[in-house]
Amino acid sequence: MATVLDNVQLGPIVRTVTLDTTADYEEILGIGNPLHLDEEYARETPFGGIIAHGMISLAYVSEMMAQAFGRGWYEAGELDTTFVRAIRPGDTIITSGKVTGQRRTSEETLVVCEIYCENQLGERVLEGTAQARAAGPVQGIPEIGA
């Protein structure tokens, strides 16, 4: 269900990533990458310890977008993100987003958002852009040429 955008700020989703989170994620993934599971192995890598899958923070970003755009996210969502810093077990991840532009056609309005995630120290762990179909034009947001 698409909701009406009454605020150009998105989020936040706030989640703490634990050792259980990375172990559970690795289990459903079924790959068994020791970087996400085995502290002894991970200590010998350039990361110096277990890190979480970047894709976990992307799930939080997607949840933020789904809350704002509903079906317009499931059917017309786009993400382009860079994992700029490793997430460690124990980190709290805070998602943020802002609608920065819109693209209007006769059929639909697509909104463009800047998105990022920070950890509890305010360091960015993920940044990029997202796009979704909005229920209608968003007031006060510049239009981007088609």
Binding site: G54, L58, Y74, A76, D80, T82, F83
Partner: peptide, 12 residues
């Protein structure tokens, strides 16, 4: 190291 990820969602 997974560095960048792009997705386009077309259908639920």
């Amino acid at each position: 190291v997974h560095f960048r990820q792009r997705f386009k969602f077309h259908h639920p």
